[in-house]
Design a protein around this nucleic acid. Structure first.
Lengths: 254, 254
DNA sequence: ACGCATTTGTTCGTATGTATT
DNA sequence: TAATACATACGAACAAATGCG
């Protein structure tokens, strides 16, 4: 049963405090908690609406509204006739869900990766701040290249909290087929559900120019991504350099 | 009443044809048509859910679901206790709804504009293609600068279909207080509801460098925006150059 | 090939709560 | 306080998609 099920009114209610939340929001929170706790794993089906309604002692429509919102937030995926499933990064359909770079001509074909580096070290101050680590905490740094049609296009510098990614090595990264966030999900139980990006234009330095096979000072997109898991906890800082000679960053406004 | 209300099945139904749509989708289409036709103007309230239910001879819940989607798409705005309103660009709250550039420190303060140019001419081939104009059709070209805290940060080159914007002049642009899309709405009846952006990194040329008060070859964000009105009709092509020395393009992924 | 059970999707109706005027 | 409008919640019925026997 939902915890504080609408106790008529609260006579001591004061202004500007939420103090109450609709039933379906409470159900939504309970479902989110189960997701966070790993009761249902990515790719799996959650119980049917009827079962959840019975479990929480609410109507099916209330469960439905909770799931509607979770599915709008891409935490769940509904499939008519089959059930409702926990969203996953390890699926063909939505592969590279977070990668917005597109080739000038047509669709994005196969993407190859090359991992340059993967090591554990004390998090630099700015990384520690972004990931909400204590100074001195260890972080994992991964550097990699992405190739579109054989050409290097993206150079990523990725920072992860060390305590969440024990045992992450370049080998495991290389072996794993599919998106990196799929590996994080299945091997480390860390699920990226949202991210914020800050995009700038910068000039390529010597190193990145060589890796991306272009001349120094070429303008590049600098994409700094902060990724969050449940509860808006930051769990990845990713600094990418994108070559936009024959690709562009695609965005939808509405 | 909605037109083709679920004619059981179509015996001749073939694969991959829609051939049917839920009632609430039909209602949504009817409401969209009224919006497009100008029956309710930006900022105005549309009829209440009950009234619409009566008009279309469906239940309130069905109208509600249609409005839910339209409001999720930012075509309508619901306000509890007051009604449902047609979204507008001419409001303080959502001003610069489409501008994603943010200063490195804190919030975006007041933005000043300076219009450099506004003229009518035959649309260049690439512009005509993007705006779906016939070759030879006239277009309006607007060039302007945006200033953040007194400093020039954005240089926009804007192209509009000539036949929709008769009488648009630099004076009218300058006189109008508020976002340009607000002017388009109220003076020309053209409502931007969606846009696609292609973002690249480029080097500043002589002209843009001077206008943005920086040195040539400085990396800049190139933001090409194609804006759409109802029915996914393109009605604006905007090419922006953003200085990202102390600002960044902010994006949310989910 | 057919039917059946399961699950989500759609639609209706009704009642009550909350916000605004 | 009352009227109005959107928001929440319940219940019920049927449709459509899927998978199994």
């Amino acid at each position: 049963m939902a915890t504080v099920q609408l106790p008529d009114h609260d006579a001591s209610a004061d202004a500007s405090a939420p103090a109450f939340s609709p039933l379906y929001q409470q159900i939504k929170a309970l479902i989110t908690k189960s997701l966070q706790g790993g009761e249902w794993k990515p790719g799996e089906a959650i119980p049917s609406e009827m079962e959840l309604a019975a479990r929480y002692k609410v109507s099916q429509g209330t469960v439905r509204k909770a799931i509607d919102e979770l599915s709008a937030e891409n935490l769940l995926v509904r499939r008519q006739g089959k059930g409702t499933f926990v969203a996953t990064h390890a699926e063909q359909q939505v592969q590279f869900r977070f990668l917005r770079l597109m080739p000038d001509d047509g669709e994005r074909g196969g993407v190859e990766r090359r991992f340059l580096d993967c090591r554990r070290l004390r998090a630099p101050a700015d990384v520690a701040r972004a990931l909400e680590l204590k100074s001195g905490d260890t972080a994992v740094q991964v550097r990699r290249l992405l190739f579109f049609r054989g050409r290097p296009v993206v150079l990523d510098d990725i920072w992860l909290p060390g305590h969440l990614f024990k045992g992450l090595t370049a080998e495991r990264l290389s072996e794993y087929k599919g998106p990196m966030y799929g590996l994080f999900e299945s091997e480390f139980g860390v699920r990226m559900i949202r991210a914020e990006e800050k995009i700038r234009a910068v000039a390529a330095d010597e190193t990145s120019a060589e890796l991306l096979a272009l001349t120094p000072a070429t303008p590049l997109l600098s994409v700094e991504r902060l990724s969050f898991t449940y509860g808006d906890k930051p769990v990845e800082l990713r600094r990418g350099l994108y070559s936009t000679a024959s690709h562009f960053y695609r965005n939808e406004l509405s």
